[in-house]
Design a protein around this nucleic acid. Sequence first.
DNA 1: CGTTAGTTTGAGGCAGATCAACTTTGGTGG
DNA 2: CCACCAAAGTTGATCTGCCTCAAACTAACG
Lengths: 200, 200
Amino acid sequence: MIYDQVSEFISQFPVQQLERNDILYHQDDTPQFIYFIKKGLVGLFHITENGKETFLRVFSDKAMLGHRSYFAEQNYHATAICLSKTEIIKVPKEKCEEVCATSPSFLKMVLKRVATDLAEAELRLSHIQDKTAKQRIAEALLFLKLKYPDITWTRKEIAEYSSSTHESVARLMTELEELKIIKKIGRDFEILDKDKLLHF
Amino acid sequence: MIYDQVSEFISQFPVQQLERNDILYHQDDTPQFIYFIKKGLVGLFHITENGKETFLRVFSDKAMLGHRSYFAEQNYHATAICLSKTEIIKVPKEKCEEVCATSPSFLKMVLKRVATDLAEAELRLSHIQDKTAKQRIAEALLFLKLKYPDITWTRKEIAEYSSSTHESVARLMTELEELKIIKKIGRDFEILDKDKLLHF
DNA sequence: CGTTAGTTTGAGGCAGATCAACTTTGGTGG
DNA sequence: CCACCAAAGTTGATCTGCCTCAAACTAACG
């Protein structure tokens, strides 16, 4: 775990309290920090010229973010937005160089993380060809709700994660409720039958 | 450049001659080597259960491959296939550990490469939502032909790179020829008007 | 040449995006 | 604590891009 490895080091930096919808950094900005989540949830979203959003990654407790751009030596390719109350530690990028220099195992862990994320992104790419929108939405419901059960995911977020639209998500959720596979609770929902949802 | 950095080290390993369609490694296999291309072209393809192929990455002279799986400590998530006559150097993975241990700058360069590829994959994901199949095919034609002009790309390869079908590629190419934007030459083609193709 | 992998073209169908109108939810401020 | 209202969700109707299937053609290599 990267966080545990560097927890002592990052404890020297102040913790910042953020609310839902607060922005850590904007697409196209130049990296100044690497961020660590002490507690909370952050989403990474890419926005195209004509306003289409794609939900790229989720970060939760002890996750690091901003590292991809930093190590690629690029501006941020996406925007990081808080999905809940979140406690963040910002490490100035100059300090990161110190860590990289002193701890080669840190680099190796970051590389492992990024290499894993690359496979995930490429498999999602392949997935889009292969599965119907309904299947992708079903999988997004499973992934988001099982992994992050405390968040009331909006239809829009689910759609942007599954490469679909909020209308299609609403329609499928109605269908899934009739089949007793999920149960809607206000704007939230719970999963009643994992297996049926997985093999939908 | 990673290759130049390690060229002396890898020169101790034999060069292997491969032909078009030869396979470097198969999806799901466990990594045993890291591969360096001395000369030639290799494509990385993911195949889903029901046989849909996605063209993930292209590797040319001096490129490294197999590193993602090695550093993620995963089996290969895709298959590497030669797109032309290719000279390959295979470095056993035990030897890689030596390099990583002795050369921290090597790790940093690999991390930069993988972090860059991650952005590219995620932007392609976002792209699929945003652009029509025609636009994506036009961009694939540009990318593949301008960057690797000596290859006669098949319609299938272009389709798998642009998340489309070989029929749609053929149709668009006919249309683009009528508009004098490209010119078909046997199975190959050349680009007559870059700008029009880019803004199609 | 003959063979086969690759290409082209047509016809048809449908998944799911889009647009629009209406309802519900849940936070907030009086 | 309730009333309000903006944001989120629902549902219907429509429309079309492009995928799929099929069949005929042709380039290129041995």
